[in-house]
Amino acid sequence: MNIFRLAGDMTHLVSVLVLLLKIHTIKSCAGISLKTQELYALVFTTRYLDLFTDYISLYNTVMKLIFLGSSFSIVWYIRRHKIVRRSYDKDQDTFRHYFIVLPCLVLALLIHHKFTFKEVMWTFSLYLEAVAILPQLVLLQRTRNIDNLTGQYVFLLGAYRALYILNWIYRHYTEPHYVHWITWIAGIVQTLLYADFFYYYFQSWKNNVKLQLPA
């Protein structure tokens, strides 16, 4: 475990906690894409199938359980909580799941490391995670007023991806033969999706104005 990996995991953890806290305390999910949250729940479910078969470390197991639990709680809040669900803007959050899920599934069936159920599901989760933020980014663009917590949530998610790339570069130089191109490509695509958002986030921070994405 290197410092970039730990920082990445912690950023990821904080992003999820920020979102849960926002929903739990202000009882609102305004500006949050249910589609993206459901895709993340699917990402974690398909990636962490190894919870049942392999043990890596206590840290690894606990973090996996936290990500699974938090992603399903967020989906539950938006769909079922009687106050929170009223703030969900269904008409703006129109991205269709299958536009994202199907291509990722096909790609995972075609391009994978090993043709086993677990390995294909793991590869699918990587492809899916790379694009799962799209419904959220579309929603941010449509929402004229992005509240601070939503902006921070997306910023932290992007930061987590960027830190993971630093982690891979570090591991590439320190661990012999540490390379897996599927992870690299999916990870780089995912990070690039945040580039535009980062640009406007830093602009709004620098100029001390409210974050707004151009239509």
Binding site: R5, I56, F67, E119, Y164, W168, H177, V179
Partner: peptide, 10 residues
């Protein structure tokens, strides 16, 4: 191991 994907990551 060149063939081993990064399964120790989250």
């Amino acid at each position: 191991n060149l063939e081993q994907p990064m399964h120790d990551e989250l």
